[in-house]
Design a binder for these strands. Structure first.
Length: 553
RNA sequence: UCCUCCGUAGCUCAAUUGGUAGAGCGAGCGGCUGUUAACCGCUAGGUUACUGGUUCAAGUCCAGUCGGGGGAGCCA
């Protein structure tokens, strides 16, 4: 049964003009008007501008504050009386909720139960819709009070109906005075239920990956992750990009970017052999060796050369034996690619994009961010706010090296020696972004010998048009480049790197037929979540982490 | 892959020089209470990761295996 959306507060909806500024005219939807989506209401209520313009993107409805959107549109379940509606706790606990004194039904999992011998019990209930649990006040007069309510333990699933009233206690504004409560699923053997109402180590919870979503931290991470993923798509969509679903299975190792996972249907115990005794992959499913993708970049470049502005956002796989808090064997990567663009355009996109998604997190998930700020990483909100407000410093690689060399002369100690031609180490990146600038930096034009073959050769023939975005507290957050669009230069680079030119025939074709300058970058989604939340380990910002020796769930 | 630290109750951790296995939380029972990291009392709960060795005696020392954390490299 599809939900209906009803206008509750029409004053909070505004129009954005084509240049991004807010247009003066406000929409004027009628309170009580309803449709199957907020956009439907906006379209219907839009009277000042022709409908065609709205659809053409000349004007598009936006909401000045995403939280206010939730306040402006009240979803109702079709065919149900408001007094009996099933609602999410997020709707109940938000400011100026219209649900006060209404009778509603909530469904969720018990966090804690506390009994009062005054003849009532308190149950903290979470349904996952928001950080804050709802307090249920369960009177002892309920028929199943002693037979069931007093036996409810952490983790049990329940459905409760009652009136939402101002709380007599501290810690919450509204609570539910329960009229009826139904236990849907009991906790079998409460003593061994792993998620107790106490602090657990993240290491322990990783071994309980199927139950850790029920904790404060992992619920908050999941909502932040969703918020950021939505913001990624919204940013690109609003800026005219198309999402390209590049393949997971790939038959070329074009980038040579480390170890790949093999995809095969051959029998590992008895594979077909050729005359030399080697495994004969022509008999394999795809008639050749195939692997899981390590990057969608080369594939997405082909679509960039037709659609102009494109991006990928999907899973990526690396079979490297990396055991660190920043590496996963399966992670999600975001890779935009823009045509008729150079490195400066690429850098500008990276800066605008990062600021947008971090701003979205701050505005849309304030309760979850407050939790991270209070309990996980003190100061992470201020760090994000400063990031969003900062101007990214642009710096040449050559300049970065001379800054580091001067730092060494002034007594700064690095484990790795600094000299032109090296790749910047973590310690070097930290010095630049934390001590020298104290803010985000985009380092550009790296030596060609430490970068990939597809990056565009600069006129000095020593450097390529590569860039890294460095941020305080995390180091490299984005790596990108302008791509080599000149077929002769590209061929030379492929040869220099000892790569097999025939493997790149379709990639080279892009340079033979209507080649244009283009650029793009790659962003590890989980690393971005780490930066926003202050979570220390990347295994705790993805639902089911895959690392060497670990794929239990 | 390298360096380093760790593995004791359902969870978080103690256990002196090698000398009887402990606490808090959680769970069960009881008391108290519009409670919210509740509080008070009692009870249950252990092959100290595994295998072998040294010793009168091993959670503790030694060797190996497995698992995990942190750092490095690779990278996103």
């Amino acid at each position: 049964m599809p939900a209906l959306f009803t206008v509750s507060d029409p004053s909070r909806v505004a129009l954005e003009g084509p240049s991004g500024g807010v247009v003066e005219e406000l929409l004027n939807p009628r309170p009580g008007d309803h449709a199957r989506s907020p956009r439907g209401i906006l379209s219907r209520c839009h009277s000042g501008t022709p409908q065609g313009d709205l659809q053409a993107g000349v004007h598009r409805p936006i909401l000045i504050d995403h939280r206010l959107m939730m306040a402006a549109f009240l979803p109702l379940e079709s065919g149900m009386e408001k007094s009996m509606q099933s609602v999410s706790i997020a709707e109940i606990i938000r400011d100026d909720t219209p649900l006060e004194n209404e009778v509603v039904t909530v469904k969720g999992w018990v966090r804690t139960r506390r009994d009062s011998k005054a003849g009532l019990s308190f149950i903290n209930l979470s349904d996952g819709s928001c950080f804050t649990p709802l307090q249920l006040v369960v009177p002892g007069e309920l028929s199943n009070y002693s037979s069931e309510v007093l036996k409810i333990t952490a983790g049990a699933s329940i459905i409760a109906t009652g009136r939402l009233v101002p709380s007599k206690g501290k810690g919450q504004n509204l609570e539910m005075q329960v009229d009826s409560i139904e236990v849907v699923g009991w906790v079998d053997d409460p003593e061994t239920y792993p998620i107790q109402p106490k602090a657990h180590s993240f290491e322990f919870l990783r071994e309980m990956a199927h139950l850790r979503p029920r904790t404060n931290t992992f619920g908050a991470v999941a909502r932040i992750r969703h918020c950021m993923a939505s913001a990624v798509h919204r940013y690109f969509h609003d800026n005219g990009f198309f999402w390209i679903h590049t393949p997971i299975i790939t038959a070329n190792d074009c980038e040579g970017a480390g170890e790949m996972f093999r995809v095969t249907t051959l029998d590992p115990a008895d594979p077909p052999r050729d005359e030399q005794g080697n495994v004969d992959f022509s008999k394999d499913f795809f008639g050749r060796q195939s692997h899981l993708t390590v990057s969608g970049q080369l594939s997405v470049e082909t679509w960039c050369m037709a659609l102009g502005k494109v991006y990928t956002f999907g899973p990526t796989f690396r079979a490297e034996n990396s055991n660190t808090s920043r590496h996963l064997a399966e992670f999600w990567m975001i890779e935009p690619e823009i045509a008729f663009a150079d490195l400066a355009d690429d850098a500008a996109l990276a800066e605008d994009f990062l600021k947008y998604i971090f701003k979205a997190v701050l505005e849309e998930q304030p309760d979850d961010m407050k939790f991270f700020n209070d309990r996980i990483d003190k100061g992470c909100i201020e760090r994000l706010e400063r990031f969003v407000d900062s101007e990214f410093v642009r710096m040449e690689y050559t300049e970065a090296i001379s800054i580091l060399e001067k730092a060494v002369e002034s007594g700064e100690k690095f484990d790795f020696p600094v000299k032109w031609g090296i790749d910047l180490q973590s310690e070097h990146e930290k010095y630049l972004t934390e001590k020298h600038v104290d803010g985000p930096i985009i380092v550009v034009n790296y030596p060609k010998d430490i970068k990939a073959f597809y990056m565009r050769m600069n006129d000095d023939e020593r450097t390529v048009a590569a860039m890294d975005v460095l941020a305080p507290g995390i180091g490299e957050i984005i790596g990108g480049s302008q791509r080599e669009e000149r077929i002769d230069v590209l061929d030379r680079r492929i040869a220099e790197m000892g790569l097999e030119i025939d493997d790149y025939w379709w990639y080279r074709d892009l340079r033979r037929y209507g080649s244009v300058p283009h650029a793009g970058f790659g962003l590890g989604f989980e690393r971005t979540i780490i930066y926003a939340t202050g979570m220390a380990n990347i295994r705790d910002v993805i639902p089911f982490p895959r690392t060497p020796n670990s794929a239990e769930f």
